[in-house]
């Protein structure tokens, strides 16, 4: 286990947005994690918990409020100019919405070739060949290169987005809910494509999603986020069979089981109430207001994100107490 090489390391990352006078939206509030080379780290959590912000901040699309992002030994969150451009060759992102992520005025060939042009990788015939090769990688043909995004379906567009990210041969790809805007049959197509590409090219993924079954399927390790904090992180089998944090526990119990009898027998843990606002959050454990085990200590003291088992991290006071 210790032989694994750390590719991306995030240390106490914070991203706060000023939303008004004395109001700060703490979208990502002090999270730390590592991503090993060649693995897939899944990030799950409900809407508005900061998953996407976390992904975009790691990519440098949002400047981090504080904390460090270390990519392959280089601190990337303060890079400027040429070094920043070099980093963009190594890390790419696939977006959630396949409709707004492709420029409607550009042909598919130009969209895919944009990274190649920016970094000056290939020109002329070599560029065309590379684009055709990428189109074949995503199961499309060279005749698609002269078409415009509006001529394609959601799944095809998402594959074009993947080809654009692959064009500059990155090592690391942030997949920002790449399947949530697609219907189920297409989701499998995209997931299988991503898995195939990972095998062929040794890619490292940070896979953001809210579909728990899908994340389990694709990820080596999974992190659970709640209101800007990482509440639990473990290898995916461990997390799905032995969740420690009460929030993860409730999340896991919500996964439908494709067997009517077991599904009927299953005890579901319901979380009461709505997700609290991330604007000026109260001190203490973020989940305390909805947690069925919450004590006074939870409401006052922020739990530490600590190791509770081999490779298993969680942030809860309760763990190890009883």
């Amino acid at each position: 286990m210790s032989e694994k090489k750390v590719l991306v390391e995030v240390k106490d990352l914070k991203k706060h947005f000023k939303v008004g006078k004395n109001a700060i939206l703490k979208a990502v509030d002090g999270i730390s994690f590592q991503i090993y080379k060649g693995e897939t780290l899944g990030i799950v959590g409900e809407s508005g918990c900061g998953k996407t912000t976390c992904g975009k901040t790691v990519m440098g699309l949002y400047p981090a409020t504080s904390g460090d992002i270390i990519f392959d030994g280089i601190k990337v969150n303060e890079l400027k100019g040429k070094e920043k451009k070099d980093f963009t060759r190594k890390a790419q992102i696939i977006f959630q919405d396949p409709y707004s992520s492709l420029d409607p005025r550009m042909t598919v060939g130009d969209i895919i070739g944009e990274g190649i042009d920016i970094h000056g990788l290939y020109t002329g015939q070599a560029r065309t060949d590379k684009i055709y090769e990428l189109l074949r990688t995503i199961n499309m043909t060279s005749e698609h290169a002269n078409r415009f995004p509006h001529e394609f379906s959601g799944g095809q567009r998402q594959r074009i987005g993947i080809a654009r990210a692959l064009a500059i041969e990155p090592e690391f790809i942030v997949c920002d809910e790449p399947i949530s805007a697609l219907d189920v049959s297409i989701q499998a197509q995209i997931i299988n494509l991503l898995i195939r590409l990972q095998k062929e090219r040794g890619l490292t993924y940070m896979f953001i999603a809210h579909d728990l079954s899908m994340v389990k399927h694709i990820s080596d390790r999974v992190g659970v986020m709640y209101l800007g904090k990482m509440v639990e992180m473990a290898p995916s089998y461990e997390l799905y069979t032995n969740p420690k944090h009460p929030y993860t526990e409730a999340l896991m119990s919500s996964i439908p089981i494709p067997d009517p009898e077991t599904e009927r027998e299953k005890k579901r843990i319901n979380i009461e109430g709505e997700i609290p606002s991330p604007i000026n959050p109260k001190p203490g454990c973020r989940f305390a207001s909805r947690c069925r085990y919450a004590t006074d200590r939870c409401r006052q003291e922020t739990p530490e994100f600590r190791e509770v088992g081999p490779e298993h991290f969680a942030a809860c006071h309760r763990i190890g107490e009883e």
Partner: peptide, 13 residues
């Protein structure tokens, strides 16, 4: 605000 602008930024444009 559109994602394709973010994508271009991510590509180093």
């Amino acid at each position: 605000q559109q994602d394709f602008v973010a994508a271009a930024t991510a590509l180093g444009a």
